[in-house]
Nucleic acid binder design. Structure first.
Lengths: 223, 223
DNA sequence: TGTAGTTTATGACCAACGGTCATTTCATTG
DNA sequence: CAATGAAATGACCGTTGGTCATAAACTACA
């Protein structure tokens, strides 16, 4: 009598196929322009059915965004699995984040709304904590590396590892967000290449949290 | 026959009083929750009248936001007028930005939407360029200081002054934005004091764009 | 296989809201 | 005091997120 289990599986796969549809629509139109009717049509379901599986449009949006977080975490894990030196690992993690931005921009864009104040109110408690957990597990990969670097005397101690992650992540994200939305404007009106700004800024930030030993190793890596 | 001039003045003051009403409502409810009916009521006008003066809700929002930009620019100008040394001026500008965040948080919050991709589409061309100009004039205050610092050999040359401004501004803003929306969460769940993170991160960033001479002067200022 | 009972799906419907426009009100002018 | 033009109004519209009474599909058991 595996009926219950089968139902469970079916429910799960239905949820997934709804996310598939939502992803297509959100990627194409963004949060504000996408409509639930639109998603329902892509999912070949009635609108009401969507609400049996997700509490709100925003919940659905976050469900898609979490796929991006999981993807990025996988990329981070791959880097760490290479067992580079601490300093090199940090540099590679930074580059990986930039690569994620370049290759999976649709997912990256979704991260922005997670920081929008008004956005949170539309989201269910469960989905919010699920996202928080996912985000935390991502950051903890980096804090792990930083702790090792601290023990090795490569990382300065003014900031805790978690604080360093926050600074690096926040600063890189917001610069990439700006590239995404205003990159062309900056290039044309101010002749600024924000991609260049991003690369240099990442290096400067990394340097700024490293001891002299760390800086030395980092600069050797650049060449 | 100053009729035309008087009409012009009246129109201007009507626009201002609409912004007054909009400001009250936006401060209280934010962009998404605030409604045009709400603003109309506060302005003691019919909703249709608002649209005689502003093209859209978003235009109105930006009109309020620009007050914040102007206010901040004034604060920056005051700092510069003190004629501190270049390094000290930069440090003071950074602190001023943080102070603006602390004392005028309602304005600061509005800055966020300016970077939201979907947001731009609802905004009229004129309002957009007006904001751009305002923002530019703000940033150019800082680039001016940085250029002087460069000439004095206090500022590194890997990044152009405008790029440095972008990095400092973007990174500080996004950290403050996070403090605003998730500060308590971080304090409770990760025991992280993001205000502390912000202060240190600002110093690290400043250091990272300075030459040794600049760094020396900066560290003397801290004590 | 038939039927009672339960789960899942549906789409007409609702309320809220941004924005419009025909109509009215007000001010200016000669 | 009309005549003319500008400014203000609010009923109205289309869109959209979300709901819920009803229907369809599926399960379980006799």
């Amino acid at each position: 009598m595996g009926t219950v289990e089968r139902k469970e599986r079916e429910k799960e796969s239905r949820k997934e196929s709804i996310i598939d549809a939502a992803q297509k629509v959100f990627f194409e139109k963004g949060l504000l322009t996408a409509t639930m009717d639109d998603i329902a049509e892509h999912a070949e379901l009635a609108k009401g059915t969507l609400y049996l599986y997700y509490r709100s449009k925003e919940d659905l949006y976050l469900a898609v965004m979490m796929r991006g977080l999981v993807l990025l975490r996988g990329m981070f894990e791959e880097v760490i699995a290479q067992h580079y030196s601490t300093v090199r690992t940090l540099a590679e993690l930074t580059n990986t984040f930039v690569r994620f931005f370049e290759h999976h921009r649709n997912y990256f864009r979704m991260f922005h709304f997670f920081n929008t104040p008004q956005f949170h109110k539309q989201v269910s408690e469960e989905m919010m904590t699920a996202c928080d957990r996912c985000n935390e597990s991502l950051w903890s990969l980096a804090t792990g590396v930083l702790e090792r670097g601290r023990a090795e005397g490569r990382i300065r101690t003014e900031l805790r590892p978690i604080e360093i992650v926050i600074v690096l992540w926040t600063s890189a994200s917001s610069l990439m967000m700006r590239i995404d939305s205003q990159g062309e404007l900056f290039r044309q009106k101010l002749t600024v290449d924000l991609e260049h700004t991003l690369r240099v800024s990442n290096i400067l930030l990394l340097e700024s949290v490293m001891t002299d030993a760390g800086k030395k190793e980092l600069s050797e890596l650049q060449s």
